[in-house]
């Protein structure tokens, strides 16, 4: 069986500036991997490239999703094939209710999978169940997508979408930042409930904290556009204790 995701020697430029400089990463089916790295190291750029952002220029490398090339697909095709990105900064969409948006998304994906579209009643039943899982108030459904949501509500809303859309590959970009400890637990419980042998999760985070709740199979460190170290969950603890500066110094030394 091919891995869920295989990134090979990926180079990406944003507005002429090289951000990713040869990223290699393999995420097997059923596993949870974490990517850690300081601000500006390229984590969100990588996540956006995987989701299909068109204004980022891929100058070299390839990405395979379940053994097939990913980079030629539109964002919506990737989503329908099972890729989901929980954004670090979810955008607000005034005038479109969360409920309307979610159902449009569910039905687009169901259609692609050859399933009948959900009518209003069936959809409500599905979404109510997921709301309970995430301790979310149903009132959020009637509000415009992310508009006026608190930071924590936005993050929960991303995980709600993830739970409703049931992707194969979940990419979570700093879902933990801005969450208090209770909210973090709820989100982690939600994510853990989605863990399954045929689903893989890529958890991008700045801090080790989240990894106490979502235990990763592997941890990768992204520094200045490259994966500079991979290891078990203990690597995250080591990073927490020593700081990113430790790896930066070590890398400089080894280059000398």
């Amino acid at each position: 069986m091919p891995p869920m995701l295989e990134i090979r020697d990926l180079y990406v430029q944003v507005e002429g500036k090289e951000i990713l400089k040869g990223v290699n990463l393999t995420l097997p089916v059923g596993q949870v991997h974490a990517i850690m790295g300081p601000n500006g190291s390229g984590k969100s750029t990588l996540a956006a490239v995987l989701a299909g952002r068109e204004d980022y220029e891929i100058t070299k490398g390839e990405v395979l999703y379940m053994g097939r090339s990913l980079l030629d697909l539109d964002p919506e095709e990737r989503a329908r094939e099972g890729i989901f990105l929980a954004f670090q900064y979810p955008v607000e969409i005034p005038g479109v209710t969360n409920m309307y948006f979610l159902r449009a998304a569910v039905n687009a994906i169901r259609k692609h999978r050859g399933l009948p579209e959900l009518d209003a009643m069936d959809f409500l039943a599905l979404v109510r169940e997921k709301l309970r899982l995430l301790h979310m108030d149903e009132a959020l459904l009637k509000r415009s997508v992310n508009e006026g949501f608190s930071g924590g509500e936005k993050k929960r809303n991303e995980i709600l979408q993830m739970a409703v859309l049931e992707p194969r590959l979940c990419i979570m970009d700093e879902t933990d930042s801005g969450l208090d400890i209770d909210a973090l637990r709820v989100v982690a419980d939600g994510v853990n409930s989605l863990r399954s042998p045929d689903r893989s999760i890529l958890v991008i985070t700045h801090y080790q904290r989240l990894l106490n709740y979502i235990i990763p199979d592997q941890v990768h460190v992204l520094l200045d556009g490259r994966i500079v170290r991979s290891g078990t969950k203990e690597l995250a603890l080591e990073l927490e204790a020593k700081g990113y500066g430790w790896l930066e110094r070590e890398l400089t030394v080894s280059k000398l």
């Binding site: 952002r53 919506e76 990105l85 005038g95 449009a104």
Partner: peptide, 25 residues
């Protein structure tokens, strides 16, 4: 906003229509 909607499986055309509706809403 268009990208966000499309990453949820919504087609580019439907995403545009949703945003237009959102503007008028």
């Amino acid at each position: 906003q268009l990208f966000y909607l499309r990453t949820r499986g919504i087609s580019a055309e439907q995403a545009r229509n949703l945003l237009i509706y959102g503007f008028a809403e």
